[in-house]
């Protein structure tokens, strides 16, 4: 694929070409990979080992085999709660954010007066300090005095939800805020993706009299495929390891109703007895689940590419 001359040639020539390509490819990857390997990959490999040990962040880890995992799945109902909550968050947050950010991007991708302001506004939640976001949304969701429930009462709902102080409604509240915060972020990526779609495709479609919907469906969506794939993979992973939003909004409560995996890792490692072995085991489980999701997405993407 790289060189234009990869037609039938002697085998020796081909293997030399392969080696040349490998070196060439690695030379591109090296600047990022070396930094990445030293600073991220090595600690992560350590973590994978530590997951099978008892370790308090100091000294030599004590090998315990599968003990951590046995406890996780058989004797830690908090972990099961957190796993379910994390999947719940991801299942709702992923499609909502995908749809909202794509909608925003299409809506704001036009050369009109004032669009710069609206694009900035859409991105603002991501820039605003997460502490302020958690505070304001908690105020908005306040069951007795919050504007949201006042509105719901006004339109006739006699018993509006308790939102962040109700174990049923806390997770939906967190999902709403998560989507609100991140849609501008992903909108930006969709906007960038939209610029790669050649304009004359739209012009040709207009000449043919295609409707706006059909243009979106037959030109925009296929043209965005690489972007959509990227965003789907990133959103899945980022949703699965959601942490700071939940931490500042509900701290996992009430009870364990919004406790997520990442917070459980934090708790075990930093707020308790310093069980880094156990915390690493939880991280490894999260990693394997995410890897599974990502692989499936890669396979689907590969298939639709062909």
């Amino acid at each position: 694929m790289t060189t234009a001359t990869t037609t039938a040639r002697p085998v020796r020539r081909r293997s030399r070409l392969r080696r040349r390509n490998t070196l060439l490819g690695l030379s591109f990857i090296a600047p990022n990979f070396i930094g990445f390997a030293v600073i991220t990959l090595v600690p992560i490999l350590i973590l994978f080992y530590v997951a099978f040990t008892q370790w308090y962040a100091v000294g030599t880890p004590k090998w315990t085999g599968l003990a951590n995992f046995r406890k996780l799945f058989l004797h830690d109902s908090t972990f099961i709660d957190a796993l379910i909550n994390t999947l719940y968050y991801t299942a709702a947050h992923l499609p909502l954010t995908l749809a909202a950010s794509l909608g925003l991007a299409v809506l704001l991708n036009r050369k009109m007066r004032g669009m710069a302001f609206f694009r900035t506004a859409a991105f603002f939640p991501y820039v605003t300090s997460i502490v302020a976001i958690a505070l304001v949304w908690n105020l908005m969701f306040s069951p007795d005095t919050g504007p949201i429930n006042q509105l719901l009462r006004f339109i006739g709902l006699s018993d509006p939800p308790g939102w962040t102080v109700s174990s049923t409604w806390a997770m939906p509240a967190v999902i709403i805020v998560g989507t609100w915060r991140e849609m501008g972020y992903y909108m930006l990526l969709f906007l960038a993706g939209l610029q790669t779609i050649p304009a004359q495709l739209y012009e040709a479609a207009q000449v043919d009299g295609a409707s706006a919907w059909s243009r979106f469906w037959h030109i925009t969506l296929p043209g965005l495929r690489p972007t959509t794939f990227f965003i789907t993979v990133m959103l899945t992973i980022e949703s699965m390891k959601v942490f700071d939003l939940v931490f500042v909004m509900t701290a996992g409560g009430p009870g364990t109703s919004t406790l997520v995996i990442s917070q459980l890792i934090w708790r075990r490692a930093f707020e308790g007895e310093g069980e880094f072995g156990y915390a690493s085991a939880i991280a490894l489980v999260l990693f394997v689940i995410c890897l599974g999701f990502t692989l499936v997405q890669f396979v689907i993407n590969r298939r639709s590419e062909k």
Binding site: T78, V165, S166, S167, P254, G255, E271, G272, E273
Partner: peptide, 21 residues
């Protein structure tokens, strides 16, 4: 295990006080 005990009791506290459990 004092930290783990307090964590579990803390979850009970928020569940009770929010009147969700």
């Amino acid at each position: 295990k004092i930290a783990a005990i307090q964590t579990a009791l803390g979850e009970a506290h928020s569940a009770i006080m929010s009147e969700s459990t």
